[in-house]
Write a protein that binds this DNA or RNA. Structure first.
Lengths: 157, 157
DNA sequence: TGGTTATAATTGCAAGTGCAATCATCGTAA
DNA sequence: TTACGATGATTGCACTTGCAATTATAACCA
């Protein structure tokens, strides 16, 4: 009926399923360890890598591949948990920064071993080094927007 | 600090970002065409492939990689839209089937061209045939649970 | 048989998400 | 300088999700 299940047509479908299965298991492990969910890790890590450990809200939304309103609420939660604080922008008084706190750094460090173990067991150990390189290269191609140079490797985890 | 951004360590992160970017764009296109979201497509397609175009709720949840309560509500919505109907199970009176309706088949057919175009442009055309095969093979490995044979190619869309 | 435990599906509730306003500020140009 | 349309961020609201009960039925076994 469609080419969903020809040998190449299945790739997309398998990609979606693999994502769902792996993320579900990672979330399960984080919750079992009484740690926050994956999106908090991503957010903390994005901030930790950022210049001055801070990001403007809209930059943040872009890194996290989500909407501004979602970021507003995510930062609300991170701020309530003491992991991040907001600072008004000097240059543009409409703007705000999300700034990583010391507690935020600690929390990311605390999450990383669980997350790392999951990535290792669920992803890296199931593949050869060559396959991992292939995945990286292919994902980069998929992210690249026509004409725009690759947006970097961050934002995901 | 971590191996997030070594050449192999980035693969997982890129995988997450690629998924987010592509799914976001596909959802955007479906919404722009006044069509339901991706999860409805997945659900309709899972049913269309299933024996008798029906699935027990818990099987459905497994295919869709989500919880039973989510499936209950998803089927509620699909049923309200006339795309699916519920049938009580004969053999096990606790059980229920979700059964694809003619309208459900029509809707999936109506969604497919938009979805197919998106997959083609955002995924297949950015990669070589060899790369697509590699992705398929790698995703299969990631999905496979130790000891359990690959759960098949479905579930994703 | 009667009682206990497991399984199928649903429901209540708290939390998260997406979209369309809204509010404040900026940039530009009459 | 004031008016106008853009931009940054937040908020309101409807919808979706996830988790922990709840309800109904099945399976097991003393």
């Amino acid at each position: 009926m469609t080419d969903h299940d020809t040998s190449t047509g299945a790739a997309w479908s398998l990609f979606l399923t693999a994502h769902a299965v792996l993320v579900e298991e990672i979330e399960r492990r984080l919750a079992a360890a009484d740690l926050p969910a994956l999106d908090w890790y991503d957010a903390l890590w994005a901030l930790e890598r950022a210049e001055g450990q801070r990001l403007r809200m809209h930059e943040f939304a872009h890194w996290m591949v989500t909407s501004r309103s979602n970021i507003t609420r995510l930062i609300d939660r991170l701020e309530a948990a003491g992991l991040v604080r907001r600072e008004r922008s000097e240059e543009d008084r409409r703007g705000a920064y999300a700034v990583l706190s010391a507690e935020g750094r600690r929390m990311r460090k605390r999450m990383w071993p669980v997350y790392e173990k999951a990535i290792s067991e669920l992803f890296e150990q199931k593949l050869s080094a060559a396959e991992i390189r292939q995945i990286g290269a292919v994902m980069r191609k998929l992210i690249a927007r026509p004409g725009i140079p690759a947006a970097g490797d961050g934002g995901g985890g």
